[in-house]
């Protein structure tokens, strides 16, 4: 019998529900399952749920519910049967690997002992899923990048990396949304907007969605801006 899920109190208004202590597909699926069940059957006083790799933070109004009541509700949701895989949304993100837009591409190739074209092919072949958002608004952590490109982050962050940069570290990839410092490797630029001017759907991805990259030329990149 697994010792998970574990419910950890977070001040008067939260429970952190843990499904594992290392990143596994099973733990993340359990996070997505509980997250989806909370949409159907929110706990009393429900405020918001924040999914991550192996755990889900559930926040509630302490005037309406307490930790024990919330845990009871969540345990019942966890016991419900899983949703079908077919519900996964797919998104295509355009990426231009032009030298001028990919300042680290050559160094990534050198460090991985690959040609630049092989790095691009490997990046395009990744099987990406949105595992969580973090760091800054719209920074979606895409897991599932190829092992061949798995590099530790740089020792020092580079400042003022422009929005739309496609950056990688380990098996992860992010399409940045703001001009921010980063220690990740900049291998391309995307014109695809993650932050959207659409009040009904202000962010392109939901956690759990699948993402593929499509290579575009510099002219297409300029035209799409």
């Amino acid at each position: 019998m697994s010792r998970f899920p574990i419910f950890r109190p977070v001040a008067e208004h939260g429970l952190l529900v843990e499904f594992g202590d290392t990143i596994t597909p099973e733990a993340h699926l359990a996070v997505l399952h509980l997250d989806a069940m909370l949409v159907q059957s929110p706990c009393p006083g429900f405020r918001e749920a924040t999914p991550a790799y192996v755990n889900l933070l559930v926040q509630f109004d302490p005037n309406i519910a307490n930790h024990a009541e919330t845990e009871t509700h969540l345990r019942a949701l966890i016991a419900r049967p899983p949703l079908s895989e077919a519900a996964t949304a797919q998104h295509e993100v355009q990426v231009c690997y032009d030298d001028a837009l990919a300042p680290d591409l050559a160094e990534v190739a050198a460090r991985c002992d690959l040609s630049v074209e092989a790095v691009i092919a490997a990046h395009l072949a990744g099987d990406y899923r949105v595992f969580l958002y973090g760091f800054a608004p719209g920074y979606a952590y895409l897991g599932g990048g190829p092992q061949a490109l798995s590099l530790p982050r740089k020792d020092a962050a580079v400042r003022d990396v422009p929005a739309g940069s496609v950056i990688i570290a380990g098996p992860q990839c992010i399409v940045t949304t703001l001009s921010m410092p980063t220690g990740w490797w900049r291998i391309g630029r995307s014109p695809t907007q993650i932050l959207r001017d659409d009040p009904a759907r202000p962010f392109l991805f939901d956690v759990g969605d699948a993402v593929t990259f499509r290579r575009i030329r510099r002219t297409e990149f300029e035209a799409a801006l």
Partner: peptide, 29 residues
């Protein structure tokens, strides 16, 4: 530990043993 959600009020401890109390504009994870 894998990155996880954090909340306002968290007392987060970096590797150097220094605590930070997270406030209104804290990062979400």
């Amino acid at each position: 530990m894998p990155s996880e959600p954090v909340t306002r009020g968290a007392v987060q401890v970096a590797g150097d043993g220094v605590a930070t109390l997270l406030l209104a504009d804290h990062q979400t994870t």
